[in-house]
Amino acid sequence: MRHGRAFWLFVGPFAAGLLVFVYVPIGWSLLLSFFDARNTVTPTEFVGLRNYADMLTDAPFLRSLGTFSLFALFIVPLTFVLALALALLVNQISFMKAFFRSVFFLPTACSYVVASLVWKLSIFNGVRFGLANTVLGWFGAEPVAWTVSTSPPWYWLVLVTLRLWLQLGFYLILFLAGLQRIPQHLYEAAWIDGAGRGWQTLRYITLPQLRTTSVAVLLLLLIAAYQAFDEFYNVLGTDRGYPPFARPPLIYLYYTALGSGGQDFGHGSAGAVILTLLIAGVTLLQGRVITR
C-alpha cells in the first residue's frame, strides 16, 4: 500500500500529462480522421475511410513524401560522411582539439530560423552583393537567383547546406563519443599484426566498432529530415505564401490543417496518422536491425 501511494506520487503527474497531451490528441485525431471536420475540431459527419482514401490519392500529399525522400537522399549521407570524417580528424589531433570541437558544435546554438535568415538574406540572397554570388563573381560567373531558382533547382543547395551546417556538430559529438569507447588495445594488436595506421585500421577496426553509433546516427538523421519544417518555411515562404514546390510532409500538413485556405482537421488528422504510422514503422524496423 505504501508502495502504491508512493508510485503514483512519483509517476502520477507525468502519466496524467502524458495521457492528456499525447494520448488524447492521438486518439482524438484518429477519431477526427474518420469524420468531416472543417473549421471545427468536433467531428461533424462520419465519412469512414474517405479522408484516408483522399490523402493517399492526393498528388500534393504523395509529392510531399517524394520531397522528403529527395531531401533525405542528400542530407543523410552528406551529414553522416562529413560528421564522421571531421570526428576522425578531431580525434587524431591533440593540440587545439577542444577548440575545433567547439567550433563545429557552435552552430547547434542557432535556431533554424536564424540560419534561414543568414542563408536567405546574406549567403544565397540572389543579388550581386550576396556572399555566394560575390564568390561566383570572382570567377567571372553570373549571379544565381538561389532560393527562387527552380530550373535548375538551386534552392536545394540552399536547404541542404543550411541543415548540414546546423546539425553536423551534434552528430560529430556522437561519433567522437563512439570513437572514445573503442578500446585502444584493438589498435595496438592490429599494429603488431602489421596493419597500416591509416586505411586498414579504419576499415577493419574503427568502422566495425562504430556500428552501433552509425546505426543510431542514421536513424536520427532520417527522423530529423522527416520532420523538416523550419528551414523550408523560412527560406521559401514569403508574404505571398509558400511556393507550390518543395513541400515536405510537415509543411504540407501545416498548410492543410492550419493554412489560410480554411482549417481542414479531418484531412489533416488523416495525414498526421499516415505520417505517424510511417515514422513508427521505420523506427521499429531500425530497432530490429540494431538488436539483431
Binding site: 490528441p25 485525431s29 477526427l32 475540431v41 522527416y226 520532420q227 490543417a257 498526421a272
Partner: peptide, 8 residues
C-alpha cells in the same frame, strides 16, 4: 508529427 492533434 503530431502537432495537428495536439493543437486540436
Amino acid at each position: 508529427v503530431t502537432f495537428v492533434p495536439t493543437f486540436v
